[in-house]
Amino acid sequence: MYGSASTHDIPANASTGLENEDPQLLAAFEARIARGEKIEPDDYMPALYRKQLIRMIEQHAHSEIIGSLPEGTWITRAPGFRRKMAQMAKVQDEVGHAQLLYSAAETLGKTREDMITDLINGKSKYSNVFNYPTPTWADSNVISWLIDAGAIVNQMANAKGSYGPYCRALERICAEESFHLKYGHDAVVHMATGTPTQRRMMQEALNRWWPPIMTFFGPADKASQHTEILMRWKVKMASNDDCRQQFLDMYVPKILEIGLTIPDPNLRKNEETGRWEYTEPDWEELKRVINGDGPCNKERLAVRRAAEDNGAWVRRALKAKQQAPKYVRPLA
């Protein structure tokens, strides 16, 4: 699962720093991407490319870890043995995705140690939707289905990006996500077509999650030099709005066919433009929650920090035995 990285993009007025790059190397780099070749870790790359990719991949990794917390806590309370097993398998997948992504980001020169420190200290962000609570099993199902669905829209786009290690990781991740999506859909359908109480639970969960879902892909991209460059470099593969439109195209019909309603009276597809219209999401709330003032920000980081603190003695003990004294970043 994954959230839009672009909500935390480099400020539009920041310098691209391109004037500091070697023009010949830069031209060869751009020509390689234009030819459809991937960039590998040892290649020359502009500082902006490296910086933005570290930011994106690191946030993606953190989102996998933090995103597994609200679902993980439902494992013991999942209804029935089969769902417990499936929920457990999904959470294990997500944590595995984080490992793949941390390594991919590491190839760009930021150590895993630093990424974890920045997450715990609130310096690095993760997908904002995980700052909202999952008060019922139905809320967990909404994450499994619709948040993962949004994530897949994003990841399928990013898998066509230009950075080799990220593509390799995403290929694996996308394959596993197909199970999450089907599992989530199954769980939601089960509730939505079940008893009146189950239906009500499902509808209420969807009502709670719809506003965060609509902010999932981030606000419309500002026309900026950065956006243009990052698209040319195949770092950013689709605009936030295009991702949101694609998501609505694919999932609104699936939500409606099981008798659920979407809590936005203005949601409709404009047949002339082919675009979905909707009530503008509350971007001020998004900003506020990203910056720490959401219902679960504190809790998510506290739980992650407790895991880190509780495991410290194990890492210390193992490290004492370790022969390798020097840090080497992963190769690919």
């Binding site: 150590t111 140690e113 974890i116 200290n121 504190k298 506290a302 739980v303 890492r315 370790q322 840090y327």
Partner: peptide, 20 residues
């Protein structure tokens, strides 16, 4: 019983997350 707030953590030393 997690604490309500905690000071930021210190940067981790190299290889706290092991070699690859």
């Amino acid at each position: 019983g997690l604490p309500d707030s905690q000071p930021t953590i210190e940067p981790k030393e190299a290889l706290d997350q092991f070699e690859t």
